[in-house]
């Protein structure tokens, strides 16, 4: 564990708490892509199967449980409790275009040809593109509530912080995880556009609005 990874994980934790706060305080999931949330639940469930047979640490265990539980809870809130506030007609990204290629990539790139390792690879590739339905929705509506942008910023910060973590581990532990690093760099790059608007508008006190 190093400071970058700890801050990254805390940022990830914060992003989920911000998302829950947004849904509870506005009593609405307007502006949140159900598809992205469903992809994240899929990512956590397929990646954390090792919960049942591999002990890493209490920290690791608690975080995994939290990510699985909170992502399922968000799906419940969107699908049942606040269902009327979710508009599927603007959440139109075709997730099969993500799931298919990620499955193929997992078959091509993995560390071992076992079901848990294939699912791990799949989850890594899927996480790297899971935000696309959300960003696509943002692009379509052209604006977002400020709290939603804070959620996305925290999520992007989590990914960005994993990059110095990998550099640090490369030097101190001689450890490189090429699958996670490649997917992680792609994933972080997807946020660049969003970050530009976030820093130049939202953090200056303006509303998040994309140029027409």
């Amino acid at each position: 564990m190093n400071i970058f990874r700890l801050l990254g994980d805390l940022s990830h934790l914060a992003s989920i708490l911000i998302l829950l706060q947004k849904i509870q305080s506005t009593r609405s999931c307007r502006g949140i892509s159900f598809k992205t949330q469903a992809l994240y639940a899929t990512v956590f469930i397929t990646r954390y199967l090792d919960l049942f047979y591999d002990w890493v640490s209490l920290y690791n265990f608690v975080m995994k449980i939290f990510f699985i539980a909170s992502s399922c809870y968000v799906l419940y809130l969107m699908k049942y409790k606040y269902r009327p506030t979710h508009d599927p007609s603007i959440d139109t990204f075709r997730v099969e275009y993500l799931l298919g290629p990620c499955a193929v990539l997992a078959l091509l790139f993995h560390y071992r040809f076992t079901l848990p390792e294939l699912l791990w690879s799949f989850s890594i590739f899927l996480e790297s593109v899971a935000i696309l339905p959300q960003l696509f929705m943002l692009q379509r509506t052209g604006e977002a509530e400020t709290i939603t942008t804070h959620y996305l910023a925290a999520l992007g910060a989590y990914r960005a912080l994993y990059i110095p973590n990998w550099i640090y581990r490369w030097f101190t532990e001689d450890m490189v995880d090429p699958i996670a690093v490649t997917a992680g760099i792609v994933q972080t790059a997807l946020y660049l556009d969003f970050f530009y608007v976030y820093f130049t508008k939202v953090l200056q006190g303006q509303k998040f609005e994309l140029p027409a």
């Binding site: 990874r5 994980d9 990830h12 990646r47 090792d50 591999d54 890493v56 640490s57 690791n60 975080m63 995994k64 990510f67 560390y111 071992r112 390792e117 791990w120 994993y162 973590n165 001689d174 450890m175 490189v176 995880d177 996670a180």
Partner: peptide, 10 residues
């Protein structure tokens, strides 16, 4: 070189 027996990152 990484030992991929388990993945310690989240």
């Amino acid at each position: 070189v990484l030992e991929h027996d388990h993945h310690d990152e989240l």
